[in-house]
Each structure stands twice: as C-alpha cells, then as structure tokens.
Amino acid sequence: MKKWIVVLFALLPSLALAAGGNVHLDKANNDLSDQASLQNGAKLFMNYCFACHSTQYQRYERVANDLGIPVDLAKENLVFDPEAKIGDLMVNAMPQKQAAAWFGAAPPDLTLVARVRGVDWLYTYLRSFYVDPSRPFGVNNVTFPNVGMPHVLEELQGIPTPIYETQVVDGEEVQVVVGTETNGRGELSPSEYDDAVRDLVNFLEYSGDPVKLERHALGWWVMGFLVIFTIVVVLLKKEYWRDVH
C-alpha cells in the first residue's frame, strides 16, 4: 500500500502539468514527418525564443541533419553566437541570475517542454496572449494566467485584445476572459499565425523526442518479426508433438 502512495505522489506534479487547468485546449495536429514545418519551426524558435530559452540537450548539427538543413546553411542562419561551433549544444548566452531578476524566474530550458506540457497546451498557450496593462510586460494569457513572459510573437500576430464573458462566480457576476482577438496589424493573418505556431510547436515536439518517428518505424518491424516468429514457433511445436498426439 505504501508503495502505491509513493507512486501516486510522484505522479501528481506531472498530472497537474498535463491537465493545464480547466482551459479548453485546441488541437495542434502536428506532423513530425513534415520537414518544411520543422524547418520553419526551427527558424521561428531561434529568432523569437532562443534569446531567453535554451534547448541545451540538443546540438546544432544534429538538428540540421534531422531537419534536412545543410550544415553550412544552419551555421549561417541558426547559430547566432560567433564563437559557437556547429557541434555545440544549443545554449544561449543569457545569465541565469540576471534572467531571474528580470523575469522573476529564470526562463526554463525548452528541450522537453512538449513532453511535459503537451503539444496541445503549447499550441493553445502561444495563441492566448492578450493585452493587460496591469502585468509587468503588458500582457496576460488565457491558458496561463498571470504569465511572466512577454508576447514575443506579437509582431507576427498583431496586438491581441481580450474577449470577455459574464460568468457567475461565488454567487456574483464577474467578467472572465474567454478568448482573444487581434487588431489585424500583425505580419501574418490569423490563419497564417496559427500555422506558424503549429510549426513552432512541431519543432518543440521533435526536440523532446528526436527519434520518435524512427522508433515508431522500428516498432512495426519488431511487431512483424514477432508475428513471423510466433508462426514459426507454433509450427515447430506441432512438429515436435506430432508423435505424442
């Protein structure tokens, strides 16, 4: 009984993260076989996220090879540190102590964020920022209330404003933010922005499990081997036991 209690408490943090509260999560519908999507996601991550968030368990060269990007092109467009080598880990230059002072907490490494939070949560989160003058960076988030992160993709999406809905909480009517809408002045249309976010989330899913497609493909070969092996064993068993029966 004690062992089950220990296991339950060990799983509680991960269950809480996966749940993501009571917010409705939109489907990301990622496709890890879409190389063009992964390449665009890598570009977006390096240009908009990497200044604060590392992916310290990846290497530039491995990413370039997996995503079909020529190494020299990757070094020219994805490696911003002039002293970094193509075989280095993808670690940014932001000091952790200063980052904690600026943001209240050091920005986390994002290598495994898709496995911890889930791709649907990430997809919804990056499309749920809205203007909130009361917050330090002037924005809040429907999926992650009181978020401590600026809306780094604002130039792509435009300025998002909240959509309110009147709800009854503890017997009183209150205005609750249930969605967002943009002013249409971003570099991308709403549908294009959704596609860009999907590409970024696709890249983060790849980052958390770079061999996922290879593992799944290998799994079919293993299952096929087990089926053939089972047939051979059954026929062999019949042959050995023929005289007995």
Rank of each mutant, 00 (worst) to 15 (best):
M94T: 11
K43M: 09
S37H: 04
R127V: 02
R135D: 01
P95G: 05
V79Q: 13
V91I: 15
L126F: 14
C49S: 11
L15T: 01
Y48W: 07
H24R: 08
S54D: 08
V71P: 00
A114K: 02
N29S: 09
M46C: 03
F103A: 12
Y123N: 12
A19S: 07
P13G: 02
H24Q: 12
G104N: 04
P107S: 10
Y125N: 08
L12K: 01
A101T: 03
N77S: 11
L12F: 10
A36Y: 04
D26R: 09
Q96T: 07
L89E: 12
A36R: 07
F45K: 10
G104W: 06
L32E: 02
V63A: 14
I69K: 03
W102V: 10
R62S: 14
D66Y: 03
V79K: 05
T143L: 05
G138W: 12
K43N: 07
Y48R: 07
S14H: 06
L44F: 11
R62P: 00
A99C: 09
Y130N: 05
S134I: 00
G20Q: 09
R127W: 00
L126P: 01
P107V: 09
S128T: 03
K43C: 00
G104E: 07
N65A: 10
R59E: 14
S37P: 02
P82L: 08
A36V: 05
V131F: 10
K75C: 11
V113E: 13
D34I: 01
P133A: 05
A114N: 06
Y60P: 02
Q35R: 09
V142T: 15
A106E: 10
L38P: 00
E83K: 15
N92L: 09
A93C: 01
K75P: 04
Y57I: 00
N92R: 11
L110V: 03
Q58I: 03
